[in-house]
Simulated scan of single mutants.
Amino acid sequence: MARPTAKAAKTEMLTIRLDPKTRFLLDYVARLNGQTITTVVERAIMAAASNNPIPGEDTYEPDTTWQDIWHVSEGVRKLRVARIPELYPTYEEERQLAFAKEHWPFFFEDAQGVSIISAYVDVLWPRIDEFVQMHEEGRSKDYFAAGAAMQKALGEAKLKVPEWPVKAKSDPKREPGNFSRDLDDDIPF
């Protein structure tokens, strides 16, 4: 019985211009370490990235590195990158993040957008531009249409569909005869 062949990992092609000296140095390091040129470049990039943390801010952990942002899901990576101004998110990334925050039940555990729901993102992200466009073009007629389309996509993937639109939580009603008050009720301003 034949075994199924494993799928090759996705790779990207990078073309760079090097002067003859730099090209020689790259070949020298590869030969010296018994590595391919690709391995030398990959490890150099990894070392450079590991040695360049993002200075801590209030919006994320101190000394965030690429390991804190990396995720196998492209959508999760994009959402994480878009939240960090020091990584210079593009207009498109900021637009996608704004959409995700507005439609937070489809992307995040809560409205603060701290914890990403990767299963939802894996299903929705390949169509994110379609959903964003649907929302931007149709919100004057049906503000919740993009959310309904995302609910359908998640349902087709057999995932639990989040409630949409999100119902506003009502304040707990006070029972008659219960005279307890909030401390804020006594503040005159």
Rank of each mutant, 00 (worst) to 15 (best):
L183C: 10
L97N: 09
T11L: 12
D142G: 14
W104Q: 01
A149L: 05
N178I: 06
I16G: 02
P55E: 09
N178Y: 06
D19V: 05
A48I: 10
P188Q: 07
P105D: 07
E163F: 00
K173C: 02
E130P: 00
T64E: 08
R174T: 15
H103T: 03
V161D: 03
I37V: 14
A6E: 12
E86P: 06
W125C: 04
A9Q: 12
D184Q: 06
T36Y: 02
D184W: 03
S180N: 15
L79R: 13
L79S: 10
S115V: 14
R23N: 11
K7E: 05
E175H: 11
N52Y: 05
L25W: 08
P20R: 12
T90A: 06
R80H: 10
F24V: 06
E92G: 09
V41C: 11
I117H: 13
I69C: 06
I45C: 13
N52R: 07
I69E: 07
M134Y: 04
G34T: 01
S115R: 12
A153I: 01
A30V: 03
A149R: 00
Q151C: 03
S50V: 01
L32A: 14
G155A: 03
Q35P: 06
P105I: 00
T64A: 14
W164F: 14
P62I: 05
E130R: 09
A44T: 15
Q35V: 00
V132G: 04
S140Y: 13
D185F: 12
G56I: 02
P162D: 04
